[in-house]
Design a binder for these strands. Structure first.
Length: 304
DNA sequence: ATGACCACCTGCGAGC
DNA sequence: TGCTCGCAGGTGGTCA
């Protein structure tokens, strides 16, 4: 369940149902699901076993849970310098799910990793992923970082819901780049958390064409765009995210219903909710862009 | 250094 | 019925 709102729904589920629990055992049922853990599945399981999962954090579409020492107070403020902290990192890819399931729930077809806990709550954490583009891994983090951000997340920009998101820097990056608006929105090193759905939705809201050169953006237009991204994501989050099918669910297996509120994505040939013109679908980077040809005028060819 | 493409997977619906 | 094709909420590595 890929974009920021869907990942945030999962983060909140983990915070409620998983944080503070001690890992009793880890079963890796498909090594590909743990491929980003370069030391291998056995090392992955070994690093988790006996540790307490801390409060989950998220940046863009990545989420992670700091690993606390057995018996240690969560997030100790006097972490001894030099002693690296570790976090369990998760990315859901295109089809990943993190589910909290009763022990006796039948194994899902694409169950990849199972985490059992040393408590009597009767539930376990499962990573289920049909296409295995997502995965889990354990990484070291800066011992002074209270969020224990894994070092491999460093290249991911702050997301627009993050108070530390720097709109000015984002605008300057757009001006500097020789690319187009939607490519930039999907570039997780410029702004994170935006995927194909919310890029199209935000562009529709501000009536901008996906192929507009980023260098033509003015400060007010960038501000408008970022606001639209924030608004569409906040609305989606309030509805539990977007799901067209059972692949995109929260930790309890429930779907969000923002798909009913989509204005552009997936609405090929349906009338634009603003002007009635048929929404168009165009191939774009091996996927699709949906837009209103009347509201979102293509950039003038002379502009470069 | 920056930008564009393609591979990595599995499953589903449409069309023949 | 069953095949092939196109398509799917993402992200790297690689090439120019």
């Amino acid at each position: 369940m890929p974009e920021l709102p869907e990942v945030e729904v999962v983060r909140r589920g983990l915070e409620r149902w998983v944080a503070g629990r001690r890992v009793a055992s880890v079963e890796v049922r498909h090594p590909r699901a743990v491929r980003r853990h370069t030391a291998g599945p056995a090392d992955f399981a070994g690093r988790l076993t006996g540790r307490v999962l801390g409060a989950p954090h998220r940046r863009g579409k990545y989420l992670w849970l700091p690993l606390e020492e057995p018996g240690a107070a969560p997030e100790p403020r006097d972490a001894s310098p030099g002693r690296a902290r570790e976090s369990l990192l998760a990315h859901l890819g295109m089809s990943g799910q993190l589910l909290v399931q009763p022990h006796d729930a039948p194994d899902e077809t694409h169950l990849r990793v199972r985490v059992r806990f040393a408590d009597a709550l009767g539930t376990e954490l499962r990573f289920v992923d049909q296409r295995t583009f997502g995965g889990l891994s354990v990484h070291e983090a800066d011992p002074h970082d209270p969020e224990a951000t894994p070092s491999v997340v460093a290249h991911i920009a702050r997301d627009p819901m993050d108070p530390a998101f720097d709109e000015d820097a984002f605008h300057l990056a757009l001006r500097r780049r020789r690319t187009t608006l939607k490519r930039a929105l999907l570039d997780q090193s410029l702004i994170s958390g935006v995927g194909n759905i919310y890029a199209d939705e935000a562009l529709w809201r501000v009536r901008m064409h996906y192929d507009r050169p980023t260098a033509t953006m003015t400060r007010p237009r960038t501000a408008e765009l970022v606001s639209a991204v924030r608004e569409v994501m906040a609305e989606a989050l309030a509805q539990g995210g977007t799901s067209f099918d059972s692949l995109y669910v929260n930790v309890n297996g429930e779907s969000g219903y923002f798909d009913r509120s989509l204005d552009a994505y997936g609405r090929q040939d349906e009338p634009c909710r603003r002007c009635g013109t048929a929404i168009r679908r165009r191939p774009f980077m091996n996927r699709s862009s949906y837009y209103c040809p009347a509201c979102q005028r293509p950039p003038r060819p002379s502009v470069r």
